[in-house]
Amino acid sequence: MGDEAGPELTAYVERALRVMEAAGAHAAEVPVQQLARETGLPLAGVQRLLKALAQDGYLTEPDDGAFTLSGRHSPLGSEHNGHKRLDRVRPALTSLRDELSAAVYLTLYEEGEIRIMEIVDSARTPRVDLWVGFHDAGHATALGKSVLRELDEKARAEYLSRHSLTDLTPHTITCRDELLRQLDSSPTAPVVMDREEYARGTTCVAVPVYSGDRVGSLGISFRSDRMYRTSRVRAGLLASAMRVTMGLSLPD
């Protein structure tokens, strides 16, 4: 991995799964203290996880301080469904769009390609014109560079051997060594940016997400002349990445 973002996200989802499994083992609601004992996790951490799981609809809280597995989700271990997973994370994408007033994008790395899985925009937050497909533009977008940054050396080399670093704008990085240096030494990691590297007048910011063991990225785009607070963008993206990773990784 490029840094600790991947392991942190994975550990978060693993803890959420343990809490879900513990709650699902009971026919009735379970007190927080009991779930903490059964999972072996700190009480404060379990409380935070339970609130997040309840917020996203995986658990319900019939009584104050007690939780149960939500009836609208299938039991753990059932077959994954791509459409259901996207439906599950769409509220988080919409919330991020509204919070940062920017179009939101979700990608996953599948079969050696960086694929756009979902775009959430609006009339006030239009998406960037995807004038070049991601097959030819992974090196020039924050979304693509976020994925490349998380790949191991072998997978990254294999990807770059099949994709030319096409010159899309005067700001596009077309030198492989320069791209690799940028990926491995970003001072803002795990946040990755592209400043008019894909499209003139557009800036994009992205962070990694995971669907099980598959890496992806969550990002936003906005006009380069727009003023924005870096700390707010970073905090919003990282918090949403946790929710999206959990939604993509938890069983249906």
Rank of each mutant, 00 (worst) to 15 (best):
G2R: 13
L86F: 06
V104F: 01
E8V: 14
E150G: 09
L69T: 09
H135W: 12
M242L: 15
S95I: 00
I116Y: 06
S164M: 11
E61T: 03
E8D: 15
R214L: 11
R214W: 08
F67V: 01
A137S: 15
H73D: 02
R232W: 04
R200N: 12
Q182K: 06
A239F: 00
D56T: 00
Y12V: 08
L250Y: 07
A22K: 08
L130A: 07
A241S: 12
V13H: 02
L59K: 01
E21D: 12
E113T: 12
L183E: 02
E99I: 00
L43Y: 13
S74K: 13
P126Q: 09
G133V: 01
G144Y: 03
V215G: 03
L93S: 00
H135M: 12
R48C: 02
G212R: 06
S70M: 07
Y159R: 09
S231C: 14
E4L: 09
T202F: 11
A241W: 01
L43G: 09
E38I: 04
D63A: 15
S185W: 12
A66G: 05
R243W: 01
Y210G: 06
G6Y: 14
V132S: 01
T141L: 11
T174F: 10
V46K: 05
R195E: 13
V120F: 03
T39Y: 03
R181A: 15
H139D: 00
R124L: 15
L35V: 09
Q47T: 10
R162N: 06
P187W: 01
M1H: 13
S217H: 13
E196K: 06
Q34M: 14
V19Y: 06
G24Y: 08
V89N: 10
R85A: 10
V192R: 13
T172E: 00
D225G: 10
P31T: 04
E99M: 00
L106Y: 00
P31K: 04
H83W: 12
S186I: 11
G71L: 11
L108H: 07
P126N: 06
